[in-house]
Simulated assay, not measured.
Amino acid sequence: MPNDFNQPVIEEFRANHGRVGGWFEGARLLLLTTTGARSGKPHTTPVGYLPDGDRVLVIASAAGAPKHPAWYHNLLANPRVTVESGVFTYEADATVLRGEERDRAFARAVESDPGWAEYQAKTDRVIPVVALTEVPGPPNINAKSMGEAIKVVHDAFRHELALIRKEIAESGTAGGLATQLRVNCLTVCQGLHNHHTGEDTMLFPMLGERYPELAPVMDRLKREHERIAALLAALKEVVSDTEAEPGHVLAEVERLTDELEAHLTYEEEQLLPVLDAATA
């Protein structure tokens, strides 16, 4: 069972699609469920994470305690875990990073938040970094209707872009872009590309067939997808430049955010009532 500190966080996380207040407010947080190494029972723990392309990284810091956290020992014994992102729940395979790969990942974490270095300085153990890679399978969206599913996915993109804008602004607008910030930008670009591809190839054709009167809406949304794709390409090009200045990247992120917010708002206004009625 979760401990007394974790349980309220877990409940708030699940009730609000990953949003929590207090100590973890505004953080990238997931719920990690491992299988007890001794008990064989599931144990759920809120942990911070770092985007890393098609996987996420979690760090077994235990706030610099002398011993690894229990969840780390659990996944060593049973590397198949369950991840809750607030939007999706999925099975994942846990891999402990070793050697240079671990050191590079931890350095990225420290560059984005010096608190990780403070934790390492407090302990004699080498703080582990663990990659969680999703096991292929149908997505499990934490929503009760198709309309709610679209809304929670949209809100996840809004949240991530807000975090990225905040992180870039706090890093200053001169000097090179931090490596983890570059990864964060590229990860959200890929996520948006995948989301819009899914809509273009599955959701929109299905709606167009069932609701011919939505044809003008579908046409507009597809055109907006094309404009957003161009903005994603521009952001990826800027971010891929290792000498890109944060101020330049921030300008591209804000351009994308403005266009995307208008698109998401229109899509929600036009499609959510239809989708909710279809699944009522």
Rank of each mutant, 00 (worst) to 15 (best):
N6E: 14
I10W: 05
E12T: 14
R19C: 04
G21N: 04
E25F: 08
A27D: 14
L32C: 06
T34Y: 05
T35F: 08
G36T: 04
R38S: 15
R38A: 14
K41A: 13
T45S: 13
D54G: 03
V56R: 00
V56E: 05
I59V: 14
I59T: 11
A63L: 10
P66G: 12
P69W: 02
P69C: 03
P69N: 02
A70T: 04
Y72V: 03
A77E: 06
A77N: 05
T82Q: 14
S85H: 03
G86L: 00
A92R: 02
D93I: 08
V96C: 08
R108I: 10
A109P: 15
V110E: 08
A117S: 09
A117Y: 01
Q120G: 05
R125F: 07
V126M: 05
V129R: 00
V129C: 04
V130R: 05
V130M: 07
A131L: 07
L132V: 02
V135G: 09
P136S: 12
N140K: 14
N142I: 08
A149I: 02
A156Y: 09
R158I: 05
L161H: 01
A162T: 12
L163S: 12
K166C: 11
E167T: 11
I168S: 01
I168R: 01
I168W: 04
T173V: 08
T173C: 08
C189Y: 05
Q190L: 08
Q190I: 03
G198I: 14
E199N: 07
M202S: 13
F204H: 08
M206H: 11
E209T: 15
V217L: 03
R220T: 15
A230H: 04
L231E: 12
L232F: 11
L235G: 00
K236M: 09
T242L: 13
G247A: 07
V249T: 01
E259N: 09
E267T: 11
Q270L: 06
P273A: 03
L275S: 10
D276W: 06
